[in-house]
Design a binder for these strands. Structure first.
Lengths: 123, 123
DNA sequence: GTATTATTTCAATGATAGTTGTACTATTGA
DNA sequence: TCAATAGTACAACTATCATTGAAATAATAC
């Protein structure tokens, strides 16, 4: 993952409205929600919501599909996993024993995602 | 995790400098680095780096410890795991079969962190 | 075609973040 | 005590983001 993509994703989620939208769509899974349902659920004016949906879609955190006059949005969980992998690249400089100590110091945990990601995650 | 804490963390990582700092310290593990070493490694002016280190420390992503006249910074990996758990809370409304379909649609992956987190992560 | 609904685009405003230089504090060593 | 070093705090400037209302686009229903 490129750095500017990662920062865009973080910036996307640094707004309370956008964080609420993403988490709501994570809960909804493959069904997703249309824009109006999101606006109702979160009590955000449509104009403002549209602004935030655009930001989330541009970073790739959401996908959008037209359904008649509705726009259906869904969360892109794969991108989130890629982001996690990027963040933890070369964790502890490849010394697992250091990871164990760091885990103790910062209450860090063993990683168990490696098989699922192109880049292993090693806490 | 509270929403405003989560947004603060994302905002922390939405800057290229801060993202570089965090990833560098993840690599360094428990040893961490003192401020001057970070400045040298990333080629950031001390004044500017101090600004970003303060932001990262205030959100809890970094810990800081005084060593004589040096300030040693370390990454807090546990907080990152808590954040991931928060993001994926109630994923797919508790219907694993939906998660599977969403995984297919967005190239999402099976989750394997549950035992390590207070809140299960279920993609 | 006309009206209605869903959503977005645009423009204007106020608020907030990033960078830099200068000045300051604190620790070390002579 | 005095000088040197590590790092931070502050102020000023620029740039960018969030919010809102009004207008525009696009699809459906009558």
């Amino acid at each position: 993952m490129e750095k500017n993509i990662a920062t865009s994703i973080f910036e996307s989620l640094s707004s309370g409205v956008r964080l609420d939208v993403f988490r709501l769509l994570v809960k909804k899974g493959k069904d997703g929600l249309v824009a109006g349902e999101i606006a109702t659920a979160l009590n955000v004016p449509p104009t403002n919501l549209s602004f935030h949906l655009k930001a989330l879609t541009q970073t790739g955190l959401l996908t959008v599909e037209q359904e008649g006059r509705f726009q259906r949005y869904r969360a892109n969980l794969r991108l989130m996993l890629d982001l996690i992998a990027y963040l933890t690249e070369e964790c502890c400089a490849g010394h697992p024993e250091q990871c164990a100590e760091l885990r103790e110091a910062s209450e860090c945990c063993d990683a168990v995602l490696p098989a699922l990601l192109s880049t292993p995650i090693k806490f």
